[in-house]
């Protein structure tokens, strides 16, 4: 297959806290595809995402397609200041990412327009998650790193987020997601499963 990859991981191994977390993982991420990283709790799924984004030191190769210099990331910790309001949060990140359009349509999409002047600390878990996805949209990155994107959410919110990922894929992007849940939402041909033991 001579398709152009977005991300190519070869023989990746990582050592953290004097322990080997995983050894010699290899997988490719192509455009319009999603890679699911499967494994038990504590098997190093989050570590893998951090290795790919070049925060942890690793041995092996991580090749990134030329032109992609930024990853979008949604993690366990949402990366929101408690005292910021939703509006100032979005304004701040909009300026950082140079997002030209208005962010009100994004809020509309997530059903968050009512909460625009509410401080982040009074939002629920799901709403906070949605806000961090709002930041992801503004970033316009080709590759998304998603750490447990839908765990702990209700059905409706899950659907919204899955749809969002689907849209991102159909625009030619790729995603790297860790999840416990088996996702039958995506086209089977476009899903790669990577198992960490």
């Amino acid at each position: 297959m001579s398709k152009e990859y977005l991300l190519k991981v070869k023989n990746l191994s990582c050592e953290r806290n004097y322990k080997i977390i995983f050894n010699k993982l290899s997988f490719n991420l192509y455009p319009r595809n999603i890679v699911f990283i499967d494994g038990n709790n504590g098997s190093g799924k989050t570590t893998l995402l951090l290795c790919v984004s070049n925060i942890l030191t690793y041995s092996g190769e991580v090749l990134i397609k030329k032109g992609i210099d930024n990853f979008g990331y949604v993690g366990h910790r949402n990366g929101l200041y408690d005292t910021q309001t939703v509006d100032s949060f979005l304004y701040f990140w909009k300026n950082i990412y140079n997002y030209k359009k208005s962010y009100h349509s994004i809020l509309e999409y997530f059903n968050l327009s009512r909460f625009i002047d509410v401080p982040v600390s009074s939002l629920s878990f799901g709403q906070k998650k949605k806000l961090s996805f709002a930041r992801l949209i503004m970033m316009k990155s080709k590759v998304w790193l998603l750490d447990e994107p839908i765990s702990g959410l209700d059905k409706k919110t899950k659907k919204i987020i899955l749809k969002l990922i689907q849209e991102h894929l159909s625009l030619g992007g790729g995603a790297l997601a860790t999840s416990h849940e088996r996702l039958s939402y995506f086209d089977k041909k476009k899903v790669t499963r990577v198992k960490i033991d």
Partner: peptide
Amino acid sequence: KEDYQNGVLLQYRINKI
């Protein structure tokens, strides 16, 4: 402390700010 605990610092690092 706040930046570290709520993951904003990690977000900055991944987004190469």
